[in-house]
Design a protein around this nucleic acid. Sequence first.
DNA 1: GGATATTAATCAAACGATTGATTAATTTTG
DNA 2: CAAAATTAATCAATCGTTTGATTAATATCC
Lengths: 208, 208
Amino acid sequence: MKTEKIDKRQAIIDAAEKLFCETGYEGTSTRQISKESGANMAMINYYFGSKEGVFIEIMNDRIASFGSQLKIINEDKISAIEKLHRVIEGYATRILANPSFHKMMHRELSLSQRPEMYNKIKAAMSQNMQLLEKILTDGQEDGSFREADNRLVIATIMGTITNIIISPQKVMPDSDFDLNVPKDKKIMKDRVVAHLQDLLTVYLTTKK
Amino acid sequence: MKTEKIDKRQAIIDAAEKLFCETGYEGTSTRQISKESGANMAMINYYFGSKEGVFIEIMNDRIASFGSQLKIINEDKISAIEKLHRVIEGYATRILANPSFHKMMHRELSLSQRPEMYNKIKAAMSQNMQLLEKILTDGQEDGSFREADNRLVIATIMGTITNIIISPQKVMPDSDFDLNVPKDKKIMKDRVVAHLQDLLTVYLTTKK
DNA sequence: GGATATTAATCAAACGATTGATTAATTTTG
DNA sequence: CAAAATTAATCAATCGTTTGATTAATATCC
């Protein structure tokens, strides 16, 4: 027996997010959303005004929760390298908590069709970037980190995680492997965190 | 005066590639392709059978030229680190030669709607991956490289380059910066190559 | 070599299907 | 009962594709 959705509005959001992740924004029709959510087609426009309205709502929700999770890692007690490790761990955790959405976000960023969305995503990401950049420069100023192209160091951290999200089978050739399965997700998270922490620790703390 | 396209077939391919890159596959209509190429709509189906046929043709062309460029870097005379440097340089050069297409390829990979294409892209990438993996294991066997999570090292190289392709303004906040401008492209290429070579040299050759 | 087939390329028009959106009527709720 | 929620039916617009006809070039025949 199917669970009755009490809130059709939320049902639409859930269904739309699932479909947008799977088949993209353009590739998803309002009728699909209607069928998947169990709501009448007109409900989409009734609650969100338009198909794009649903999309914007989803992105805003996710981006909001994404930003609010940002912990204050700048406790003065811990070292720069320890801060870096925590940011990597936190970033990987957040991305891997919902790989499908992150893929969709990246597609949207890569297409940059909706300028409003594009700027929101950029703004959300820049929080992490600023935090990372500060950690790097602080470490460099107190001499614990080497000088580096910090923007590209950040691109390396984010790019590595995004890369394994988009093509995890490159890392895990096992055909059964599925990032949506909690167990597999944890395996991948631990592995990418270990790799990035190791890589950046060696790189940033090795004397020239 | 506008240059007359002699080959309409090629005009369709050129127009479609431009539009697919800009607005995505689903976001591009056959009428847009027709208008942009100056060819009649029917010519699309006449030459390629379908809209998807055009897309597949474009991808096949690009992937073919992508694979054929793969140089034999395994000259025994040079060291593992030198080989690594050359692969990084070559990979960055190829990706930055056509950032728009690479973005489109990544979107396609991320959506994985067309399994045939998905496998082709994977196969094309795996050439680079195998070459990289061999260089890494060879270096590790002869003791010049440290032990590492090689698959993730590869993910780091590819992910870093992809990341700066998709959001170059994160690296270059200058609003004028445009990866399609040759000068800017060169600046970015040199920078990402220098960063990756530096990063991986330090990481792989530092004694534990 | 001139008339006659044959072919490839191109076109405007139309096809049925699907798109996102809206209407007006109906049901549910408070 | 009034407001909010939900429905089926319908809208114009656009989608990818197909059609039948036309042009221009090439090949074949006598």
